[in-house]
Simulated scan of single mutants.
Amino acid sequence: MHAKFVALPFVTRRVLIALALFLLAFVSVHLPKNGFSETLCFGSLFGLLWAVGILVPLLKVTFFVLRWVLRYHVLFKY
C-alpha cells in the first residue's frame, strides 16, 4: 500500500494528505473539548497548511509582521 502511495504523482499525494488532515481536524472539532482533541485539531490544521503549500509564506509574513510590531513598540512606545 505504501509503495502504491509513493508511486502516485507529487500533487496527488499532497491532495490526499491534505484531505486526510482536514477530515482529522473535522472529527477532532466534534470530540469533547480537552487537551488531546485541541492538540489534535491544531496539529492537523498545521499539517494541512503544510500540505496545501501555504505554510512557509504564512510563516514569513507572520514573522515580518511580528518584527515590525516589536520594532514599533520599542521605538515609539518606550
Rank of each mutant, 00 (worst) to 15 (best):
A3K: 14
V52E: 06
V69L: 08
G47D: 02
K4H: 03
I54N: 03
H73E: 12
R71Y: 06
T12G: 04
F5K: 03
A25H: 00
L66M: 13
G35Q: 09
F46R: 06
F5Y: 11
R71M: 08
F46T: 14
I54E: 00
H30P: 02
L16V: 11
Y78V: 15
G43D: 04
L70I: 15
T12C: 09
F76H: 14
W50K: 04
S37L: 02
L75C: 09
A3L: 10
L66A: 10
L8Y: 01
L16S: 07
A25P: 00
F22D: 00
L59C: 13
R67F: 11
G47F: 03
F36K: 05
L58T: 08
G53R: 10
A51S: 10
L49R: 10
F22V: 05
S28E: 06
T39G: 15
N34F: 02
C41M: 10
V69K: 12
C41D: 10
L8Q: 04
V29Y: 02
A3T: 13
L40R: 08
K60E: 14
V61P: 01
V11I: 13
V74W: 07
A7R: 10
L70Y: 11
V56M: 11
V6D: 09
R13M: 06
M1W: 07
L19T: 13
I54K: 08
V61W: 07
L8K: 02
H2R: 15
V27Q: 05
L58W: 01
A3H: 13
L59D: 15
L31F: 04
V74N: 10
P32S: 13
R67I: 14
V15D: 04
L70D: 07
F46P: 10
P9V: 05
W68P: 04
A18W: 00
V6Q: 11
G47R: 09
F76V: 07
L31N: 08
L24N: 01
P9K: 14
V69T: 15
L48T: 00
T12D: 13
A20K: 01
A25Y: 00
M1P: 00
Y78F: 11
L31Q: 08
F5A: 11
G35T: 11
L19H: 08
L48Y: 00
V29F: 02
L66K: 05
R14Q: 10
L49N: 03
V15N: 01
P32N: 09
T12I: 14
L21E: 00
V52G: 02
Y72N: 10
L19Q: 07
